[in-house]
């Protein structure tokens, strides 16, 4: 009797210890988030002790590494937005129509072939996309525009944007595919039975029903585009150029972060610390997008009680 309770006690203790160990492992993800936030925040504060926060947010000149360096991030933000915008313009129609084709039209056989193709696009490392953008796409764009007499930079925003768009296609396509597939079939039947064509049913019934999920997918793609580094480091420019012409060179937040941290300035110089100020902006912006995205998909899940998302 007493050995039994002793055994039990030991068992209960062991169980508790295991549970604590598991909880501690889970805690690491929390630590990671705070680690990212604080490591960026502290250095960013150092930066803003040396440079004006107001000028950082509103200034239009970014000239690090020189006497009287200026750190106005507006041209960097606009460069990021222009390239992201091009990427989204490419990725949303291709991704969404691919999802529509896969979920509404494709036979099982076509699906079995097409899904791995989309997954292959997702499996290509971004450095490889970057190389392709810089070595193949950018010269192609320059030559094409030269043939109609328009001059384009070899670091044009268009090349990075286009390739980044292709990179995001699988994110939007596979998430939208899941969402569209989980719109209940009886809605399609209801519309078809009213004498609607298939495309009318998709456009007016299926897509509006799937809209929250699609928005969530687009936001996730947007956040990926803004945070994408290698493609722009390799194919976009270094110069903070305030312009909206996609044929000009422009730079992005991520490019400037890489440039600041791989340069040979001292770690506590504003040149290097500017990377953390930009990192903070990137963190805050993508965090907002991610949270909205998670929230909208939750709304969709609750609406259709779909668990495969």
């Amino acid at each position: 009797m007493s050995t039994l309770t002793q055994n039990n006690k030991r068992r209960v203790l062991a169980e508790k210890l295991i549970e604590y160990a598991l909880a501690a492992a889970t805690g690491i993800t929390i630590l990671t988030t705070f680690g990212i936030l604080f490591s960026i925040l502290f250095e960013a504060i150092e930066f803003f002790k040396l440079q004006s926060f107001f000028y950082f947010m509103t200034g239009t000149e970014w000239t690090p590494g020189v006497e009287g360096a200026k750190f106005g991030a507006v041209p960097i933000f606009t460069g990021t937005l222009v390239i992201t915008f091009i990427a989204i313009i490419v990725a949303v129609p291709i991704g969404l129509f691919t999802a529509i084709y896969l979920s509404e039209y494709a036979s099982k056989k076509t699906r079995d072939i097409a899904k791995p193709i989309i997954e292959t696009l997702a499996g290509i490392p971004t450095v490889v996309y970057g190389f392709f953008a810089a070595i193949t796409v950018a010269p192609f764009i320059v030559n094409s525009f030269a043939s109609i007499g328009i001059e384009a930079s070899f670091n044009n925003a268009l090349a990075s944007g286009l390739v980044m768009g292709i990179m995001i296609v699988p994110i939007i396509a596979s998430m939208s595919d899941d969402v569209i597939s989980s719109v209940p079939d009886h809605m399609r039947k209801g519309s078809l039975a009213l004498g609607m064509t298939k495309s009318e049913t998709i456009k007016f019934i299926v897509l509006p029903a799937a809209l929250p999920g699609i928005i969530s997918a687009v936001l996730l793609g947007l956040s990926r585009a803004i945070g994408e580094t290698m493609i722009v480091v390799m194919a976009a420019g270094m110069r903070a150029n305030l312009s909206f012409n996609p044929l000009e060179d422009m730079t992005t937040v991520t490019v400037r972060i890489v440039d600041a941290l791989t340069g040979d300035s001292a770690f506590d110089s504003p040149d290097t610390l500017s990377a953390f100020a930009l990192g903070l902006a990137l963190f805050v912006f993508t965090l907002i997008l991610n949270i909205i995205s998670v929230y909208t998909i939750r709304v969709f899940k609750e609406k259709y009680k779909s668990s495969n998302l």
Partner: peptide, 28 residues
């Protein structure tokens, strides 16, 4: 399509569209 326009159908499970009552009727 023209056949289904002339011959309507009501299903076992009520399947209104996720739209307003008005739009449900006005849609087709």
């Amino acid at each position: 399509v023209s056949v289904r326009k002339k011959i309507g159908m009501v299903f076992q499970q009520p399947n209104p569209f996720p739209k307003s009552i008005y739009e449900n009727v006005a849609y087709a």
